[in-house]
Amino acid sequence: MGRYWRTLRRFWSTAVAVQLEYQANVLIELLAVAMSLGGSLFLLSLFYGPDQTLGGWSWAQALMVQGLYTVFDGMASTWLRPNLGAIVTHVREGTLDFVLLKPIDSQFWLSLRTLSPGGLPEIALGFALLIYGSVQAGVVLTLPSLFTVLVMLLAGGLILYSLWFLIAATSIWFVKTWNATEVLRALLASGRYPLNAYPPALRLLFTLVLPVAFLTTVPAQVLLGEAAAPMLLAGLALAVLFFSVARAFWLFALRFYTSASS
């Protein structure tokens, strides 16, 4: 385990070093994040006239959901996109062979190889929005609810990672996967709004098939003290299930790679 920790520290210190080689990008990134968040808030405000709600959620509560969505979006740009997007390059250029010959788990290497600090401001902004929304919505934070929300955020992160990794792993077969990733991103955008804003059929889809609900709506409900225990357990179970499927699929993909590649 010690070796994995040391490797992780090295991974990330080199990742920061790479970013420092490209400082100008950070500014563009910041501008994009600010514009994007401004646009999202403007769009959300269109749903709220005086005394209006969206699926029974008040403006402040919807801000919490929007904040959580921003956090996960930032996580995707900091962690998922730079790492999982590189898998396709490894396959195309044949450098996956080097990864497979390292005495370290290949999924660990491919998933945590780098970090892109450019997404960190977005995560910070997301949390700021979440806190602002929570205060406006009169959330009373207790130790158990804080603990629960952290666990649910972890579960949500695991679900998002697993979905993304599943798609990235198909690059063993397909030359390009970023358009599949775009489909995932388009569908994930549904997490910008509370689950109740959708018709019942979509709610089911966003809970069980593409569990966006567990990324944003459920953690917000935990903070608001409205989360039901079965929903929390379902979230944890889905996180474990999705991660196991992603892991199994990767091992299957590797078996295919090593028996069919030339």
Binding site: R10, T14, V18, Y22
Partner: peptide, 18 residues
């Protein structure tokens, strides 16, 4: 790693191989 000096890649390899 393309953008970094070889020494950085060597440090990563040292960690990976323990």
């Amino acid at each position: 790693m393309w953008d970094l000096p070889p020494l950085d890649s060597l440090r990563v390899n040292a960690a990976v191989y323990g």
